[in-house]
């Protein structure tokens, strides 16, 4: 549907974006690959040299590694599950005729505007703090011992905080999708004898597939790199209980100051991200024929 000259123009106009992104991706990646095969410790700068695969073997054999992988997946999966399930429920509620749609949306969308370090520190300090947090006061008021959120349930706490940040996103996309569902379809199903559950199962849920796809795609992109929330709250602890892959790399780079090992971890993370991306894009490309 175009002429040769417009195809050439199209190539030229898409080039800056592609070239910039490629450079932005490839230069640091190449440096990381280089570092990952070298001995490079900031604490002993005079000892350098090639170490072959040793950084990789250290990383893969580290007891924290598999924990970090499973924590990363738990974080992504947990947040996706919470935001989508509650997102659908809240969207269904807000889609009912209620007074004050506008203000309701403003309240629901608000967490999305809160930057991650602020979100993490509000939850950690004002709510989950074992002495001064609101949850501790409530527990004491009801005669229970305060829960030590960051010590006893570090992953759950982090997942909870991140889910709170992303719930508005999921809810509003799902709500927009719900509102585009024609009421005639629902009425037709009602006349065909479908009860509320079947209407949801066979009409509403299929209609939401596309929206859920978008939620999964966008959230996964952001969730795979979650760092600030852990940094602010548990610092990956206690021990390594809430260390994710990005946080494990960070610990190697900034705390152990072993750039070689951190780089090897970075490459492993990139490979894993690409595997996830491959499956995600393949599964989702079909749904997103916009």
């Amino acid at each position: 549907m175009a002429t040769q000259s417009s195809r050439i123009a199209a190539r030229i106009m898409v080039a800056p974006s592609v070239i910039l992104l490629f450079v932005w991706m490839i230069v640091p990646l190449a440096m990381t690959v280089w570092f990952s095969f070298r001995l490079y410790r900031l604490l002993s700068p005079d000892r350098t040299g090639w170490v072959g695969m040793r950084n990789y073997t250290w990383f893969l054999n580290s007891p924290d590694f598999w924990l970090a992988i499973s924590n990363t997946l738990l974080l992504v999966g947990g947040v996706l599950a919470i935001t989508i399930i509650f997102g659908v429920l809240i969207a269904l509620l807000l889609d009912q005729p209620v007074w004050g749609q506008g203000p309701l949306r403003i309240l629901v969308i608000s967490p999305f505007f809160v930057m991650p370090p602020v979100a993490a520190s509000i939850w950690e300090n004002l709510f989950m703090h074992p002495q001064n947090g609101m949850f501790a006061s409530l527990a004491l008021g009801l005669g229970y011992q305060p829960v030590l959120f960051m010590e006893d349930y570090p992953m759950a706490s982090v997942i909870f905080i991140v889910a709170w940040e992303w719930l508005p996103f999921a809810t509003l996309i799902l709500l927009t999708a719900l509102q585009s569902l024609s009421s005639e379809q629902i009425e037709a199903a009602e006349i065909d004898g479908a009860g509320p559950f079947n209407r949801f199962r066979y009409i509403v849920l299929p209609h939401l597939t596309r929206a859920i796809t978008v939620v999964v795609l966008i959230q996964t992109i952001f969730l795979l790199g979650i760092f600030g929330e852990i940094f602010t709250t548990t610092q990956g602890g206690p021990g390594s209980a809430s260390t994710t892959l990005p946080y494990m790399i960070y610990k190697q780079a900034v705390i152990a100051k072993d750039i070689g090992r951190a780089a090897a971890g970075g490459i492993i993370a990139v490979i894993l991200a690409n595997i996830v991306a491959y499956f995600l894009m393949r599964g989702i490309g079909k749904h997103l024929d916009a």
Binding site: L29, M31, F35, Y247
Partner: peptide, 19 residues
């Protein structure tokens, strides 16, 4: 393009810092 966003930023922190 979207998949470039999936690269964990921490992984390239040191190179980026040096650059």
């Amino acid at each position: 393009m979207l998949s470039t966003k999936m690269m964990p930023a921490v992984g390239v922190l040191i190179p980026m810092y040096l650059l």
